[in-house]
Simulated scan of single mutants.
Amino acid sequence: MLNHLPRRARQLVAYAFSGGVAAGAHYSLLIGLVELGGVDPVLASLAGFVLGGVVSYVLNRWLTFVATRTHGEASWRFGLIAFVGFLLTGMLMHLFVKLAGLPYLPMQVVTTLIVMVFTFAGHKFFSFAEREEA
């Protein structure tokens, strides 16, 4: 379907799609835990991050990156980048929500955008180590 686009454009579209689905899973769990379960927004954000991370791994490996690593090798690398993203998410949400007293949902959007930049680069160059194509 996207084969007529240049490789980088296809990758960006696939990454945006995968990220949208992963973010949907993350935000659904976050909002459900906070609004229906009364869970602390920082903890709910981290739970959502884990769910979104699983969705992201599956979709990005399948759609976005031309993986040159096996699942065994890529998964621990993905996990390492995801762990740093997890820590960054927790720190940012704690800073924004707990220390600054800002509303959790807009701050989750800001946090997602910041973490997304880091994780894209980490997954592209470390987790999946793409081979170059013409």
Rank of each mutant, 00 (worst) to 15 (best):
M1W: 15
L2R: 10
N3H: 14
N3T: 11
N3V: 06
H4N: 09
P6T: 14
P6C: 06
P6D: 10
R7H: 15
R7T: 13
R7M: 14
R7V: 12
V13L: 02
A14R: 10
Y15Q: 00
S18C: 09
G19D: 04
G20L: 11
V21K: 06
G24W: 15
G24E: 07
A25W: 13
A25F: 12
H26M: 04
H26W: 09
H26I: 06
H26S: 04
Y27C: 06
S28E: 11
L29K: 11
L29E: 08
G32C: 13
L33P: 08
E35Q: 15
L36M: 12
G37R: 08
V39T: 10
V39M: 07
V39G: 06
V39W: 09
V42K: 04
L43E: 12
L43S: 12
A44V: 10
S45Q: 14
L46F: 15
G48D: 07
F49Y: 13
V50W: 15
V50T: 08
L51K: 13
L51T: 15
G52C: 08
V54N: 01
V54D: 07
V55A: 02
V55P: 04
Y57S: 00
Y57R: 01
L59D: 01
L59K: 08
L63C: 02
F65Q: 00
T68Q: 04
T68R: 06
R69T: 04
R69M: 02
T70D: 01
H71R: 00
G72W: 13
W76S: 01
W76E: 00
R77L: 04
F78G: 00
F78C: 00
G79Q: 05
G79N: 04
L80M: 11
I81E: 00
I81D: 01
A82S: 07
G85K: 01
T89G: 04
M93H: 05
H94D: 05
V97E: 02
K98C: 06
K98I: 07
L99C: 02
L99N: 06
A100L: 10
G101S: 03
L102M: 05
L102I: 14
L102S: 02
P103Y: 12
L105C: 06
L105F: 14
P106K: 05
M107S: 03
M107C: 08
M107N: 05
Q108C: 11
Q108K: 09
V109R: 09
V109A: 03
T111K: 08
T111F: 05
T112V: 09
I114L: 03
M116Q: 05
V117F: 13
F118M: 00
F118N: 01
F120C: 01
G122V: 04
G122P: 06
K124I: 10
F125Q: 03
F126W: 05
S127V: 03
E130D: 07
R131Q: 08
A134W: 15
